[in-house]
Amino acid sequence: MALRESAKHAGQDADLRLVTGLVDGDGGVEHGDFLVRMAEAVARWQWNDVARLREESVALMGEQPISDAILVASGFNGITRVADATGIRLDKITESTTADLRSLTKIDDFAPAEKWSGS
């Protein structure tokens, strides 16, 4: 994920620790707090929460952006399963473009040695 790169391009500094709950707030991303809550509810298939957040959000962001946020969350709900079920390793490109994000969010904790050690 190139969140830090994107934030740089926008001339702002996003706090990536928002992703793993290490900090509160919007992380320097417009509606970041709301988007994180929506992404989590969609990823966990908590449809009552999603419905409530949808209601809240339309006035906040507009209908199409919310629909697109749910679309992004849906796509990543699928692609994370592909990554997890194929046991792929980090490639050099992904590793280099996500180094800062990985360091800040501690996301590498989700890749224990057991992931690749056989029986």
Partner: peptide, 15 residues
């Protein structure tokens, strides 16, 4: 763009 990456990253973390 960074809103997209935030949502994508959050879903990866939840999963």
């Amino acid at each position: 763009h960074r809103q997209v990456e935030l949502v994508a990253s959050k879903v990866s973390a939840v999963n």
